[in-house]
């Protein structure tokens, strides 16, 4: 037994050595090709915990970056994306690799990346890093922080004013981070919209189980909810279940999901990442590499309330007016949407 183990050990080490030696010469070939910088190109990298097509957090950022790339010119901006890096270890490798390759701005688009960032940033003082949701900044780190409760509040009002059954259903992933802020906003908005309407929260316990979210939505609807909402990647499963039900509507967050169910998505809270990205690019140009805590809010237009044009006539004018008033009040600071205090 021992002999066999030893021989295998040897075999593996040989293999390692072989691949090491064999690789060295080939590895040098790509090295001298760091495209001679003719045009001053801005290089942006994005690291995502989920996928680029999750119809939520990740995709909204990808579309924001693409929009920036479009307006600034494809030849001026390069965008590289690494997805499915839910584990902070792998994300750390990716971020460090991008930094080593000389990317100018690296978006670590997940709240779980804060710790790995603090370790990397010291070695790359000239690189700008940005991550969110978070608040801790460093001289070369921006933190961004969507005030999800603000749009949630408006959507909650809309839900209360539109619900015929008097029950608004929320499908939460887990009770943490942006989901809590959003749900809390919805709940307060529902109360403000119509006091007698109830909101019910149920959690699937998973960020990405779309089948589970769909089933939770079915349970919510069978128990009376007719306006539903929810956040994170799993939410799209709930949306699909709503889309199969007559007279049930969905409110989406992070991005506009009406494309997948045009007859059922009433409105959306949309994060305008394009503005945030542009802001970071401009700050960097002006010499500010980081150090700012950037909030996304209704006030500066980085959070928008977007109605689905196709269903616009379903929403009574007085409801719309009431919501617009609340929006103005939030923007002016007259109305403050509270966050949970533990």
């Amino acid at each position: 037994m021992k002999k066999r183990v030893f021989s295998l050990l040897l075999a593996v080490l040989t293999l390692l050595a072989l691949s090491g030696c064999g690789a060295k010469p080939t590895a040098q070939t790509p090295a001298p090709a760091p495209e001679a910088p003719k045009v001053e190109k801005l290089r942006i990298a994005l690291v995502l915990p989920a996928t680029v097509d999750d119809l939520a957090w990740g995709q909204s950022m990808v579309e924001g970056l693409k929009a920036v790339q479009k307006t600034m010119g494809e030849d001026k901006v390069e965008v590289a994306i690494s997805e499915k890096l839910g584990g902070a270890v792998d994300a750390g490798s990716a971020i460090r690799q991008y930094a080593t390759q000389g990317y100018d701005i690296i978006f670590a688009h997940g709240s779980q990346y804060q710790s790995v960032l603090t370790e990397i940033i010291k070695d790359f003082p000239k690189t700008t890093f940005a991550y969110g949701t978070g608040f801790t900044t460093h001289p070369n780190v921006f933190a961004y922080d969507p005030q999800a409760q603000e749009g949630g509040y408006l959507l909650g009002m809309l839900a209360a004013l539109m619900s015929k059954s008097g029950i608004v259903g929320i499908i939460g992933p887990m009770e943490s981070g942006d989901a809590v802020k959003y749900n809390y906003g919805i709940q307060q908005g529902v109360i403000a919209g119509k006091a007698e309407v109830k909101s019910r929260i149920a959690y699937t316990g998973s960020f990405n189980d779309i089948v589970g979210a769909g089933n939770m939505a079915k349970t919510q609807m069978s128990a009376g909810a007719d306006i539903l909402t929810g956040s994170s990647q799993q939410a799209v499963g709930a949306l699909r279940a709503v889309a199969e039900t007559k007279n049930a509507y969905w409110l989406s967050t992070d991005m506009d999901q009406s494309g997948i169910a045009p007859d059922h998505v009433l409105a959306a809270q949309v994060y305008n990442w394009e503005k945030i990205v542009k802001k970071i690019i401009e700050l960097r140009k002006a010499g500010t590499l980081g150090g700012q805590h950037l909030t996304l809010s209704l006030a500066d237009g980085t959070i928008e309330l977007k109605y689905n044009a196709k269903l616009a006539d379903k929403i009574p004018a007085e409801a719309k007016a009431k919501i617009e008033q609340a929006k103005k009040d939030i923007i002016s600071g007259k109305l403050k949407v509270e966050l949970p205090k533990k």
């Binding site: 709240s111 943490s176 205090k341």
Partner: peptide
């Protein structure tokens, strides 16, 4: 505790 005081509520 900072996650609570800043209202970000990130689970860490």
């Amino acid at each position: 505790p900072q996650e609570v005081s800043y209202g970000t509520g990130v689970p860490q």
